[in-house]
Amino acid sequence: MSPEDIQLVVALCKARAGLKIDPTKTYLMESRLAPLARREGYNSVEDLIAGLKLRREEPLIWALVEAMTLNETAFFRDRAAFDQLRDDILPTLTRMRGPEPIRIWSAACATGQEAYSVAMIAEEAQGLEPGARIDIYGSDIAERCLEKAQSGLYTQFEVQRGLPIRQLVRHFDKIEDNWQLSPRIRQRVRWRRINLAADLSAVGRFDVILARHVLTALDDGIRRRILESLAAALPADGFLMLDTEVSPQDLTDAFRPVSDRMGLFARNPSFRAAA
């Protein structure tokens, strides 16, 4: 890739999705873009970029940005966060909400494992208030990821990363060499394409938002804007779940940590007034 091609990819990713791409990691760009080039009928990544410059087609630009996003995920990734959701957050919220649905949003769900992990927890949850309803939403910027998420179909390798065997046999059917989530679990999750770097004011209200393993890949200014948009989407007693690499307090005063629980945040009471 020429320096000019690299600059174009870096600029497009930043402008469209707030993605922070290191221009020195040419191999990473090429390995992510090569499958897209093949799929689109180009002989090489260089040809793909040349075609993109020539035609400037929106679907191709988005396909390039999507190809550069991180799709690394696993069922029950960082298990402690899910234990906390099951044992603490859900019982507390269902007690407070009564028959009102609890809305949970997996905000950068990639191929869906995080949203389905929440769905399995909701399905198995013990000790919740009678009649409690939990609505789960999964979103990602990448259409191809959402298609896979919607299918609920995973390889043997994917189901063995993080998914205990009892949950595999309880919730999945074996389809040839792959495993598919049962219709019951699949129906619990609603999917939507959402670009977190875009305007999130109409996204709705959620009691729990999971935005784990996404913010570190984004530009600082956009990260702050996203965090403030997420704060606006949370009620005062809602929770934001992040990975432990992100400290929202370093970027904005919209959130405060919830006691000593790693990665768990609540909206700052003062944030509304400031917003």
């Binding site: 696993a74 390798f157 063995q160 990363r161 065997i165 046999v169 059917d173 074996k174």
Partner: peptide
């Protein structure tokens, strides 16, 4: 799945389907 259930009923704690790698064993 029937074989896996049989193993669990016999007292298996966890179950790995080959092929495996270090990440799967650690997980």
């Amino acid at each position: 799945p029937d074989r896996i259930r049989e193993a669990l009923a016999a007292g298996a704690t966890e179950y790995i389907m080959k092929p495996f790698d270090g990440d799967i064993i650690a997980a």
